[in-house]
Structures are given as structure tokens and as C-alpha cells.
Design a protein around this nucleic acid. Structure first.
Length: 517
DNA sequence: CTGGATGAG
DNA sequence: CATTCTCATCCAG
């Protein structure tokens, strides 16, 4: 069977990574313009400085440095507390909105953390300023662009100009400087983005990617974290911090060799990344996250379980408030999760979760939610290794709302269904889009891949349950404006074209019609 | 489905 | 080594 995502990713892409320079510190400068960029600024969370502006870095303040050490290196460090991420989230969202406005579909925009954004500009128009073939003045290059494949070079020169204008928009509309990497893949864009910073950008020639990656220290490979590093050192004691990707490739020449060290899933991926190969696509980050959590770490022991509960309730208030202000009406969290961390466990986390029966109406029944949260906490504190966790041993609590969903046919309230359907109808032709994984997000870019897609295959992927039903007609249409394949299903009752994800609610609406009759 | 491990910024 | 305060994905039970 053809794998559409593989086919789509085979065509050369043009990917930008925009990286906000020392994001938290810049947020403080933007919020308080009187704060000079020449004064060293550090952002404090508990007893560490998590990041610092460039003035502070020049004075020896590093990331995740103890406050004590930072002040010793730089006694006049201006310290801002960054434990509350609210305004950092707000700036991040503003920057995302700016990028979205200037890079509409079919350009995908994927957020990584609060301060990095991948943009796929493969299908963007050729940038007007790229016609001379020159790069923007603030754009460095890795490798000889002129010597590379002609079409790929045109795409990357244009992409470099798009990165330049994106950064210009972020600066003039939001007030933030950025660095950027431009390349034929997410991997390439990411790895060169930090070569020239702050406030500069770097493009890499496609033919140079493998060579460039080979020369990097092996820990630069994204996805190669502390666990894999530990396994590598155990198998190969000669490995040090200065071991390069090329050295590793000599030790582990095949995907199978990698799989033995890092597992069947991660291993082959790392093997490919080490050769500069990354076929992953930029995926639009959804507006609704999969979880929303608030946590607090505390150094001094909590005296009693009541005090622990008091902390828990404060966090719960905070996460509920966040839900109200940040998430749209259709989102409903289905579960509540409480996580604690103890010193004696070596700072490991343990969690417990439970369904939230009240769903949407917890404002009216907050006590019930509080009781659920307290029950989860008691379960964790009672479930310690020796039978019970010492309350004073707990040094972090996290409360999370998880598994958001839109209300569907499973919710009983019949009156609410037509309203929901009306909302989706108003949202217009945001039809399902095939990404090859059977899900309904992301474009299929490669025209040849589209031509090979088999209709039955598509139907089976999108809604295997309905595909067995002969009455359902599946339509595949090309939306020329958006340059996407839309998969729609014809409703046998009203002849409407319905997106697969709204099918169930559509049917419930018809059921409601029947009941009125 | 729940809970842990891992990795990202 | 993680340390902060998050978020996502994968996997075993």
C-alpha cells in the first residue's frame, strides 16, 4: 500500500524555523521598554535563573544557573520572576497570530514550545525580492547555494526572503527580534537556526545538510536525549561530549544497529537524522491543546496533608481559570490528573487521574471537582513505596485538565446538538484533509501522490466504520483555492456534503428532527 | 484508559 | 545529573 505521507515528503520542501531570541527576557523588555537592553536581565523561577538576556550572558550568566551563582558572576543582574507564564503565553500567541496572518494556508505553521515556529513555505508564492537570486543582507549561508540543484536553490532563496519578511513582521508588529534557519527539512532548518544569532538568519544548501550534520557533536541531534546518550555510553565507553555524528555513524552504521541501542521506533529515526535525512512534515499546531496543566515546586517541606491540599486547591483554581480564558467554548476536558514529585524517589513523578463527570458545568459544581482532586492526591500520598509518602517529602504538585473533546452524540442533551451543528456549518468548508495517517489534518502536497491515491483506500482510512455502509457516498474533491484534497461524505437525508469528523453530530441533528415530528 | 518514560523549549 | 513550568508522543499493563 502506498504511504501518502512518505510520497508527499519525498518532494523537496522549503522549511523555516523562527526562533525568538532569549524569549522570556525579551518579553520583559517588550513589557517594560524603560528596561534598557544594555542592563543584564535574568528570569528567575524558584532558585534558578532559567534564561537571561544577551547583556547578562556576556557577563557569564547562563541558562538554568543557580540564582546564587548568577549573582556572583553578575552582581548587578536585574532579576524578574518568571514563574507565572501568563504573559509569555500571550506574547507567543500574538506572534503566532502575526505569522498566521502573513502565511495563510497552505503554509503550515507548527509551534515548538513558546518560542519556536516552523513554517513550511514550499507552496508559498515566489518571494518578489528573490528574483535577482541574491539572499537577504542578514542571511548567512552554509555551503554553496549556487552549486546546488537549481529548483531547490530557487526555493531556498525565496524561503530565505520569506523568513526575512516574517522576522520583519514579528519585529515591527510584536517588538521581538528573532533568529531563523532555512533549509530543505525541519532538521536542516532547526540545526542552522542557531548558527548566527541574535537577530540573524542562516540558510543551508541541500547538498550540505548531510555533511554539516556529520560534523556536529552527536548531542545536537533532536530526539537524542539523556536516556539514549546513557545507553550509547554503556555500549561504547569511548563516547565523549566531543564525539561527532560522523563518529557515531561509524560505530552504528545501520538502522538495525541503532535499533538495538535506542529501540525499534526511535533507533531508525535517529539513524536517518544522523545522515541528514528528515522526512517529517510541518504540521499546523491545533488551536486546542491536548492538556492544560499548572504546577508549583516548593523546596521547604509541607507540614501537613491539609497544607498540601491547600496548595492543590490553589493550583486547581488556576488551571480552571486558564481553561476559561484560553480555551474556546466547544472544548470539554474529560479527565483530571494530579501529579506529585518526591525528593526520596529521586525527583520522579507519580500521577493519578480520574474522569470529570461534571464536564462543562464544573463552575456550578466546583466542590465536586475539588473532591475528585483531593481524592487523587490522597491516593498518591497513600500509595508510596513503603505504604505512605511522607507529606514533607513532596516537593511538587501538578494539576492537569486532559483529553479535551467537543461534545458529540455521546452527550445526552438533545437541545444542544442543533446549536453545535449550526456552529460547524457556519465554520464553512473546513473539510477534512488527508495526511496519510488516516487523520484529518495537513495537506498532501505532492501531485503525483494525489494521483495514486485510491478512493476506497481513502474511505477506509478516514471512517472505516462508515465505509462498510453502502449508503454512504465518499467524495474526494480538490479545493483549488487552498490546494488541498478535501474528503467529504454525502448525507443520504439532506444531500449535504459533510466532513467525516462532523458526521456523527450531523446524524444526531437528523435524529432530533425526527423526534420533533 | 491509566500511568510512566522520554524529549522538546 | 537535574534544577523550572510546561507540553507532546510513545509504550506497557
Amino acid at each position: 500500500m502506498q504511504d501518502p505521507s512518505t510520497l508527499a515528503s519525498r518532494s523537496p520542501r522549503a522549511v523555516i524555523l523562527i526562533d525568538l531570541d532569549c524569549f522570556y527576557a525579551q518579553c520583559e523588555h517588550v513589557r517594560d521598554p524603560a528596561l534598557s537592553t544594555t542592563t543584564p536581565v535574568g528570569i528567575q523561577q524558584k532558585n534558578i535563573i532559567v534564561t537571561a538576556n544577551y547583556a547578562a550572558r556576556l557577563r557569564g550568566v547562563g541558562k538554568l544557573m543557580l540564582v546564587h551563582d548568577a549573582l556572583r558572576a553578575c552582581p548587578d543582574l536585574a532579576i524578574r520572576n518568571g514563574e507565572d507564564l501568563t504573559h509569555y503565553r500571550a506574547y507567543s500567541k500574538q506572534i503566532w497570530a502575526t505569522l498566521r496572518a502573513h502565511f495563510p494556508a497552505p503554509c503550515a505553521i507548527e509551534r515548538l514550545g513558546l518560542d519556536e515556529f516552523f513554517i513550511d513555505v514550499t507552496d508559498a508564492p515566489v518571494h518578489p525580492d528573490s528574483e535577482t537570486g541574491q539572499l537577504p543582507g542578514d542571511c548567512h549561508a552554509v555551503g554553496d547555494l549556487a552549486g546546488d540543484d537549481l529548483l531547490a536553490v530557487e526555493a531556498l532563496v525565496s524561503a530565505s526572503w520569506w523568513a526575512h519578511t516574517a522576522r520583519h513582521h514579528i519585529l515591527t508588529e510584536c517588538g521581538f527580534t528573532t533568529s531563523a534557519g532555512i533549509g530543505p527539512s525541519k532538521l536542516a532548518a532547526k540545526l542552522v537556526s542557531s548558527l548566527h544569532k541574535p537577530n540573524l538568519q542562516t540558510v543551508i544548501a541541500p547538498a550540505m545538510v548531510a555533511v554539516y550534520v556529520a560534523g556536529l557533536p552527536f548531542r545536537a541531534i533532536p530526539g537524542l536525549g539523556s536516556s539514549v546518550r546513557k545507553a550509547l555510553r554503556e555500549h561504547f565507553p569511548t563516547i565523549t561530549d566531543s564525539t561527532t555524528v560522523a563518529d557515531l555513524t561509524t560505530l552504528l552504521p545501520t538502522a538495525a544497529a541503532w535499533a538495538r541501542i535506542a529501540g525499534a521506533r526511535v533507533g531508525p529515526t535517529l539513524a536517518a537524522l544522523c545522515r541528514g535525512i528528515d522526512s517529517s512534515l510541518v504540521i499546523d499546531t491545533p488551536t486546542t491543546p491536548t492538556q492544560l496543566s499548572v504546577e508549583d515546586a516548593f523546596a521547604s517541606p509541607t507540614p501537613s496533608i491539609t497544607d498540601l491540599e491547600s496548595r492543590l486547591f490553589t493550583l486547581l483554581q488556576s488551571v480552571l481559570a486558564r481553561f476559561d480564558t484560553e480555551l474556546g467554548a466547544p472544548a470539554v476536558p474529560k479527565s483530571l490528573r494530579v501529579t506529585i514529585r518526591t525528593r526520596s524517589s529521586g525527583f520522579k513523578r507519580t500521577s493519578a487521574s480520574a474522569p470529570v463527570v461534571g464536564g462543562l458545568r464544573w463552575r456550578a459544581d466546583e466542590n465536586a471537582v475539588l473532591r475528585v482532586a483531593r481524592g487523587l492526591l490522597r491516593k498518591l500520598v497513600a500509595g508510596g513505596v513503603g505504604g505512605a509518602v511522607d507529606v514533607g517529602d513532596v516537593n511538587l504538585i501538578n494539576v492537569a485538565l486532559v483529553h479535551f473533546d467537543v461534545p458529540s452524540s455521546s452527550t445526552a442533551a438533545g437541545a444542544a446538538q442543533p446549536t453545535l451543528l449550526a456552529q460547524w456549518a457556519r465554520a464553512g468548508p473546513r473539510a477534512a484533509v488527508l495526511d496519510g495517517g488516516g487523520e484529518t489534518t495537513g495537506p498532501v502536497h505532492d501531485r503525483a501522490a494525489r494521483a495514486r491515491l485510491d478512493l476506497n483506500d481513502i474511505a477506509a482510512r478516514i471512517r472505516p466504520d462508515l465505509h462498510d455502509d453502502d449508503d454512504v457516498l465518499v467524495l474526494v474533491e480538490h479545493d483549488d483555492a487552498a490546494d488541498r484534497m478535501a474528503i467529504l461524505m454525502a448525507c443520504p437525508f439532506c444531500a449535504a456534503s459533510v466532513a467525516p469528523w462532523s458526521w456523527d453530530v450531523h446524524m444526531v441533528a437528523h435524529d432530533a428532527d425526527d423526534n420533533i415530528d
